[in-house]
Nucleic acid binder design. Sequence first.
DNA 1: AAAACATGTTAGCCAAAGCTAACATTCTAA
DNA 2: TTAGAATGTTAGCTTTGGCTAACATGTTTT
Lengths: 145, 145
Amino acid sequence: MKEEFYTSKGYKIKNEEVLSSSMEDYIEMIYRLSQESDEVRVSDLSSALNVQPPSTTKMIKRLAKENYVIYERYGCIKLTEKGRNIGSKLLERHRIIFEFLECLGVKENILEQTEIIEHAVNDEVLSKIDELTKFLKGCDKSLSP
Amino acid sequence: MKEEFYTSKGYKIKNEEVLSSSMEDYIEMIYRLSQESDEVRVSDLSSALNVQPPSTTKMIKRLAKENYVIYERYGCIKLTEKGRNIGSKLLERHRIIFEFLECLGVKENILEQTEIIEHAVNDEVLSKIDELTKFLKGCDKSLSP
DNA sequence: AAAACATGTTAGCCAAAGCTAACATTCTAA
DNA sequence: TTAGAATGTTAGCTTTGGCTAACATGTTTT
C-alpha cells in the first residue's frame, strides 16, 4: 500500500481520530489543573487556555457526551477514568516534546512550539524522540562532566 | 512576557499566520508538480492531494487572490515568484523533517508523519532539527564505517 | 432577604476547508 | 462539425471551534 499525500485536513479525516487537537488541549489542561486543585471550573479552564467561557462550555459538553469528563451545569469539571488515562498520556507527551526541544537548544516560544508539535506526532515518533532525547542527554553528560 | 497556553486554534489565530496548513499543502504540491511538468492543472492537483476538484478550485482562487499563483478559469496553474519562493522553502522543510524521521528510524506512515509535522515546526526548530540530523548522520558513519 | 456582582449558559454568528450535485466549458473522435 | 467524454466551476451544505451579546444562575454583601 503506497503512501499518499493528503492535505492537513485530509489526514485528520482519514485518521478518523477520536480526539481533535482542541479536545486534547482541553483534556490535557483539565488534567493539569486537577493536579493543583480538585475544583476545576469553567472559568479556570477558560483562562488557562485563553479562551472565552462559552467556548469552554461548548467543549465540556462535548467531552461529557463522549465520556471524558463528568459535568453538570454550573458545577465543577471532573475527569472520568477514561479522561484521566488520556490526560496523563497527553501530559507525558507534552513533557517528551518539551524536553526534546530544550535539548535541541530551542529558545523562542518553546512552550508554543511544544503545544503545536505535540498534536502532530504519533506514538512511534514520540517514542523515538524520547529515546533520542535520553541519548542526547547522555552525550551532554559525557561532553561536560 | 510569560508564555501562555492556547488551544491549537488559538495559536493559529494568535499567529495571524499568512498561510494555513492547507494553503501550504497546495503550494508545496504545485511546486512539486511544476518540477515534473509545466502544465499543472486542477485535476492533477486534486488527485495528488486526494481532494475533490471543487476544493482545489476554491483554494486556487484564494491563492490567486493572494498572489501565490496565476490562474484563469479552465487554464493551468502557475506559481508566481512569491509562490515559487515559498514552494521551495516548503519542499526543503519537508525534506528536513523526512530525513529526520528516517534518521530516527521511523518506519510506519513516515510520509504522513512528515506531512503533519512539517506544518508544526517554526524556523528555529526546523534549523535545529536539520543540524541534529546532520550530527546524527555523522554518528552513524563513525559507528558503521 | 434583596441587591449587586461573578460566573455560566444559550443562541447565533464567522471562517476554513472539506464535500456533493448540478451546470459550464473544453477536448476528442466519429 | 458536432456529440459525448472529460475536466472545471458554482452553489450550497457540513463540521469544528472560535467569538459576542444576552440571559440565567449562584454567591456575597449589606
